[in-house]
């Protein structure tokens, strides 16, 4: 058993830009969206590792790469010490059972024509773990555990007959029934109502203890991340610009982008109204990201070197890593 449940080395995912035939002829060369553009991180067993950043920064792509739902352009991904990219089909099937995905829109991730109970138990059949009455018993048990009660009644319902909160619980039950080691939770509460969000987060944390889970928690909401993540990585335009223990990163952000992101989050306290340090402009295109440090055109501290050399992603202390020329 490895202490590092997931290790990601120098991982890239470039998507070719869809173009018309004529454009391709004229350009003679394909353009790529650099969704993930060389990242390194590890997720330790039993922790909640947050992956945060604005829309389009590459969070979902990273999650999908780890689950091997898409193939990387290059790089290494290790799960419990095994190279996910080279294992054979049979072993991948077994690994897949150990990593599960929960995503943002529970409605889209449930088959509208499948009863909730059947959907939750589906994985048990696919992986040949249980079927028939045994499957039903396991499903009812799990439904009760995640608060989908009365379970026998809800078992027979279709997704549209449940509330948003209930649907998200169903998705969690479906992921947990296979007793995975890792859960990649991609914005699991982004679509839920304010009063439902806290309930779902609490449930996820309880289940984590009970089932010895490790979470890769993808979010654009730094305030929510604070309540559940042990460590966090901040992404910008396909790169991780900073990572480390959450409290360390939040109290002493080392990268100007992290600093801006943290200061932009509105605080529910009228006394805390503050002058934001808000970078100008918006995120540039991931097709031709800026040279050097990708944040340099918006960075209030940019120096001459920032547009020329790409800063190394390296440690300051206690596993707090940052890619910024200011910190050298």
């Amino acid at each position: 058993m490895s202490e590092k449940l997931v290790e990601v080395h120098d991982l890239f995912k470039w998507f070719p830009v869809q173009k018309s035939f004529l454009e391709t002829l004229l350009a003679r060369k394909l353009d790529y969206i650099r969704a993930v553009d060389g990242i390194d991180f590890e997720v330790r067993r039993g922790e909640v590792f947050g992956l945060a950043g604005e829309s389009g920064s590459g969070k979902t792509t990273t999650g999908r790469l780890i689950l091997r739902l898409i193939e990387p352009t290059r790089g290494g991904i290790f799960f419990d010490g095994r190279n996910v990219l080279t294992v054979n089909g049979e072993e991948m099937r077994r690994l897949r059972q150990r990593m599960q995905l929960i995503f943002q829109d529970p409605y889209a991730s449930l088959n509208p024509r499948m009863k909730i109970g059947t959907a939750i138990g589906h994985g048990l059949e696919i992986h040949g773990i249980a079927k028939g009455q045994r499957e039903r018993d396991l499903v009812i048990q799990m439904m009760e555990r995640v608060g989908l009660t009365p379970a026998a009644t809800l078992y027979e319902k279709y997704p549209h007959q449940l509330s948003g909160g209930q649907r998200q619980r169903a998705v969690i039950a479906r992921a947990l029934i296979l007793h995975p080691d890792l859960i990649v939770a991609d914005e699991p509460i982004a679509m839920a109502d304010v009063s439902v969000r806290a309930l779902i987060l609490h449930l996820m944390m309880e289940l984590k203890e009970e089932f010895d889970l490790t979470y890769l928690f993808i979010t654009h909401d730094l305030a929510t991340a604070k309540y559940i993540c042990d460590r966090i990585a901040i992404m910008y335009l396909g790169k991780i610009v900073e990572s480390g223990p959450l409290r360390e990163v939040y109290s002493h952000p080392q990268h100007p982008y992290t600093e801006a992101l943290l200061s932009a989050v509105p605080v529910p306290n009228p006394r805390a109204r503050r002058e934001h340090i808000i970078p100008k402009g918006e995120i540039p295109s991931p097709i031709n990201p800026p040279s050097g440090c990708r944040f340099h055109p918006r960075c209030p501290y940019a120096m001459e070197i920032c547009s020329k050399d790409e800063p190394r992603f390296a440690g300051t202390k206690d596993g707090h890593l940052v890619a910024c020329h200011l910190r050298r």
């Binding site: 304010v194 009063s195 969000r197 806290a198 909401d221 730094l222 305030a223 929510t224 604070k226 309540y227 409290r247 939040y250 109290s251 943290l262 989050v265 605080v267 529910p268 306290n269 805390a272």
Partner: peptide
């Protein structure tokens, strides 16, 4: 409502 909303202050 106020107790159940996340707040980024540490």
């Amino acid at each position: 409502l106020l107790r159940s909303i996340p707040n980024i202050s540490l």
